[in-house]
Amino acid sequence: MEKFTKGYVDVVVRMRTDKREARKFLHRQLYELRNQVTREHYFEMYEYINTATN
Rank of each mutant, 00 (worst) to 15 (best):
I49F: 10
K24D: 00
R39M: 11
V12A: 05
D10I: 08
F25E: 02
A22Q: 04
F43I: 04
T5W: 01
Q36C: 05
A52I: 07
R34K: 12
F43M: 06
R39P: 05
H27M: 09
T53K: 14
E44A: 10
T51E: 12
V12R: 01
Y46D: 12
H41P: 08
F43C: 05
D10M: 11
G7A: 13
E44R: 02
V37W: 07
E40Q: 12
T38W: 04
Y8S: 09
Y8P: 06
H41T: 14
R39I: 08
R28Y: 01
F25C: 01
H27K: 15
Y42P: 03
G7N: 13
E32P: 02
A22I: 01
N54R: 05
T53E: 08
K6A: 11
L26S: 00
Y48D: 12
R28A: 01
F4K: 09
E47A: 09
Q29C: 06
E47Y: 01
K6E: 12
I49A: 15
T53N: 13
E32C: 01
R28Q: 04
T38Q: 08
Q29E: 03
N35K: 05
T5Q: 07
L33T: 03
R20F: 14
F43D: 05
D10E: 15
E32S: 05
V9I: 15
N50G: 12
V12C: 04
A52P: 03
V12E: 03
G7M: 06
K3W: 10
R34I: 10
Q29H: 13
F4R: 09
V12W: 00
K3E: 09
Y8G: 09
V12S: 02
G7C: 08
Y46P: 05
E47K: 05
E2R: 14
E32Y: 02
E47T: 10
E32V: 02
T38H: 06
T51V: 13
R20D: 15
K24G: 00
Y8T: 10
E2W: 14
R20K: 14
V37S: 04
H41V: 14
R20E: 15
L33Y: 05
V11S: 12
F4M: 09
L30C: 03
E21I: 06
H41K: 10
R14H: 13
Q36E: 01
Y48Q: 13
N50W: 06
Q29D: 01
Y8K: 00
R23K: 15
Q29V: 08
H27L: 06
T5E: 04
A22P: 02
V13K: 07
L26M: 03
K19V: 11
D18T: 00
I49L: 14
V11R: 00
N50M: 10
L26A: 00
T5V: 05
R23M: 08
E32K: 06
R14T: 07
V11T: 15
K19D: 14
R14S: 08
F25M: 03
L30A: 03
N54A: 12
T53G: 11
